[in-house]
Write a protein that binds this DNA or RNA. Structure first.
Length: 498
RNA sequence: GGCGGCAUUGCCAAGUGGUAAGGCCAGGGUCUGCAAAACCCUUAUCCUCGGUUCGAUUCCGAGUGCCGCCUCCA
C-alpha cells in the first residue's frame, strides 16, 4: 500500500516516493534554544517523531535530522535578560531541550546539528549564493535578492507582488526589496560573531537550515517538516536560497503540522498564552500528552484545554487497564483442550482486521486519529470478551496473547505504550489470600482484604480468569490548570483588524 | 488588501457518492457473595442555500461563521 503525505508545496496528498528506494531523508526544524519549549512546539516534535516511527515500522530506513538554532536575535536578547553570555544561555536550553524531548518520548534524531558548529558550511553557502548572483552586500550585511529567484513563493503559494502590498515589514533602507532577507548579518558590538569574507557577523535565520540539511541529507532530500508557521517565510526562504544555487528544490515533500491552540487561539510565545512542556509533563504522563496530540489529525488545529486533556487521560487509563488485564490473564497456564472456540476465532478476526486498518490509516497521510480509533476498538472488543466470562480455552488464551502483543506494538508506534508496572509481591499475596477466602465464602474477610489492596493503590476485578489487580492511574488534572506549576502567560492585547 | 484552512452527536474527533469509527461526559441497566474505574443500552436529517447525480454529509457554486499566514514563531 502506498504511503501518502500532504505536500504543502503542491497542496495535495502525494505518494511518498523517495530518491533512494527504501530510504527516507527527513529534516525537521528544531528549536531556537532561548527558553524551554512549550507544548505547541512539542506538538511538532511529537507529530514528526511519530512519522519517523511509522515509516521505520513500515520498513523504511529513516535518516532524521533536527537542527538546533543556537545563535539568533532572541538568544542575544534573552541572554541579556538572564545575565548570561549567549553561548551559556544557548547551552543551558540546548540541554533542557534534549531532556524534554526524551521526556516526551521522542527518539533522538540521527543528527542534531547546531548552527554555531557549521559556520564554515554556512559561509560557503552564502558565497555560492553570491557567486550565483542571487545576493548582495550592504555594509557587511548580505541579503538574498528575492526578485532574482523566479520560483519565489512556490512553497507557500504566495505571489511577490501581493506580498508587498500587504507587507507589514519594516522598511529597511539597505534592502533593494522589502522582501529580501538576510543571509548574513554584520556583527554589532558585543554580539557573538564569526569571521567571514564580509567581516565579522552571524548567520541570518534561514541559512543554517539550508547549509546543515544539505550537509547531512544532500542537496535535495525527501521530507522537510515543521510547524505551519514556518511555511512563510522560513521554508520559502530556505528553499529559495538553496535552489538558487543547486537548481533543485531543497526537499520534495514539505510537511506542516497545525497549531496547538488555547481557547481557540494559537499558542505562541509572543502572545504569551502558552504552557511550558516540561511543566505539563510534571502532572501528565507523556503517553497522555501524546495520545492527546495524536487524537486529531496532525494538520488540524487542536485545542489544549482541561476537557480535551482529561478525555485523553481517561482513554489512556482505560487502555492501560486493558493491557494489565491481558497481562494478568496470559500468565495463566495453558490448558490442553481441543475445544473449538468461536469467541477466540472472532477476536482473532478482529485482531487481523485491526492491524490492517491501523496501518492503512497511518499510511494515509499519518491519520493517527483514525488509527487510534481502531486500536481502541480492538481493546474494547477484548474487554467485552473478558467481561463476558468466556470458557478458558487454550485457543482463547493464545489469542489474548496475540492481542496483547499487537496492541503493544501499535501503542509503541504511536509512543503511547504504558510502561508495565508489575504488581508487587505483597499485593499478589493479598489477592491470593482473598481468593482463598472467597472459596471458603468468608465474605467479610474477603472484603477486608480487598480494602487492603485498594489502599495500596490497586483496583480489583474478579474475572472468569481470576482476580486481577489494576493500577490506579489517575493524574490530578486540576493541579495543572490551576497551580503555578505550569508557566502560563496572559494573551497580549493585540490590535485586531475589524 | 492578498493567500490558505476549517465547519460532523453534550464535548473531542475519524470517515465515506448509497443514511456516519473511536474517545470523553451523562442517564439507565447487567454480570457478581457484594463490588468494580468492568460489560451492555440510549443520544447526529454531518453550518445554510442552490447545482450535478437514481442517490451527497461526502463533488461543484454561493453565503455565513471561526482560525491562520502575509512580522519572531512548531
Amino acid at each position: 500500500m502506498p504511503f501518502t503525505l500532504f505536500n504543502t508545496a503542491t497542496r495535495q496528498k502525494e505518494e511518498l516516493r523517495t530518491q533512494e528506494p527504501g530510504v527516507v531523508k527527513i529534516y525537521a526544524c528544531g528549536p531556537t534554544v532561548y527558553d524551554f519549549f512549550h507544548v505547541g512546539n512539542a506538538r511538532a516534535f511529537i507529530v514528526f517523531d511519530t512519522l519517523r516511527r511509522v515509516l521505520a515500522d513500515r520498513g523504511w530506513k529513516v535518516v532524521y535530522v533536527q537542527n538546533i538554532t543556537d545563535v539568533d536575535d532572541k538568544i542575544i536578547h534573552k541572554a541579556e535578560a538572564e545575565a548570561l553570555p549567549p553561548e551559556k544561555l544557548a547551552a543551558k536550553y540546548t540541554e533542557a531541550f534534549f531532556q524534554d524531548l526524551a521526556a516526551l518520548g521522542c527518539l533522538p534524531a540521527h543528527h542534531h546539528p547546531k548552527a554555531t558548529e557549521h559556520m564554515a558550511e554556512i559561509i560557503a553557502l552564502v558565497r555560492k549564493i553570491m557567486a550565483a548572483g542571487h545576493a548582495y552586500a550592504v555594509n557587511g550585511d548580505i541579503f538574498f535578492s528575492v526578485r532574482s529567484f523566479p520560483g519565489y513563493g512556490s512553497i507557500s503559494g504566495k505571489n511577490i507582488d501581493e506580498l508587498e502590498k500587504g507587507a507589514r515589514v519594516e522598511i529597511n533602507e539597505a534592502k533593494q526589496d522589502p522582501l529580501d532577507f538576510a543571509l548574513w548579518k554584520a556583527a554589532k558590538k558585543g554580539e557573538p560573531s564569526w569571521d567571514s569574507p564580509w567581516g565579522p557577523g552571524r548567520p541570518g535565520w534561514h541559512i543554517e537550515c539550508s547549509a546543515m540539511s544539505m550537509k547531512y541529507l544532500g542537496e535535495s532530500f525527501d521530507i522537510h517538516a515543521g510547524g505551519e508557521d514556518l511555511i512563510f517565510p522560513h521554508h520559502e526562504n530556505e528553499n529559495a536560497q538553496s535552489q538558487s544555487v543547486t537548481g533543485k528544490p531543497l526537499a520534495r515533500y514539505w510537511l506542516h503540522n497545525g497549531y496547538l491552540k488555547i481557547e481557540g487561539e494559537k499558542m505562541s510565545k509572543s502572545s504569551g498564552n502558552f504552557w511550558i512542556a516540561r511543566d505539563v509533563l510534571k502532572v501528565i504522563p507523556r503517553q497522555v500528552l501524546r495520545l492527546f496530540m495524536l487524537s486529531a489529525h496532525y494538520r488540524s488545529p487542536l485545542d489544549f484545554n482541561p476537557e480535551n486533556i482529561e478525555a485523553a487521560g481517561h482513554g489512556y487509563a482505560e487502555f492501560q487497564r486493558t493491557m494489565e488485564r491481558l497481562r494478568g490473564i496470559i500468565r495463566l497456564p495453558r490448558q490442553e483442550d481441543y475445544l473449538t472456540d468461536t469467541t477466540a476465532a472472532e477476536l482473532e478476526k478482529e485482531l487481523v482486521e485491526t492491524g490492517r486498518s491501523f496501518s492503512a490509516a497511518l499510511e494515509d497521510d499519518l491519520n493517527t486519529a483514525g488509527a487510534l480509533g481502531f486500536l481502541f476498538r480492538l481493546a474494547n472488543k477484548t474487554r467485552q470478551i473478558i467481561a463476558g466470562r468466556p470458557p478458558k480455552t487454550h485457543q482463547l488464551l493464545q489469542v489474548f496473547h496475540a492481542v496483547h502483543e499487537a496492541l503493544g506494538k501499535m501503542a509503541e508506534i504511536l509512543g503511547v505504550l504504558p510502561e508495565p508496572q508489575p504488581v508487587p509481591e505483597v499485593v499478589q499475596k493479598l489477592i491470593e489470600q482473598r481468593e482463598a477466602a472467597r472459596l471458603e465464602k468468608k465474605w467479610e474477610l474477603s472484603d477486608q482484604l480487598r480494602e487492603q489492596i485498594i489502599s495500596r493503590g490497586y483496583a480489583l476485578e474478579d474475572t472468569t480468569f481470576g482476580s486481577l489487580a489494576l493500577t490506579q492511574n489517575q493524574f490530578i488534572l486540576a493541579e495543572l490548570f490551576t497551580s503555578q506549576q505550569a508557566t502560563r502567560g496572559v494573551p497580549a492585547d493585540r490590535n485586531r483588524k475589524k
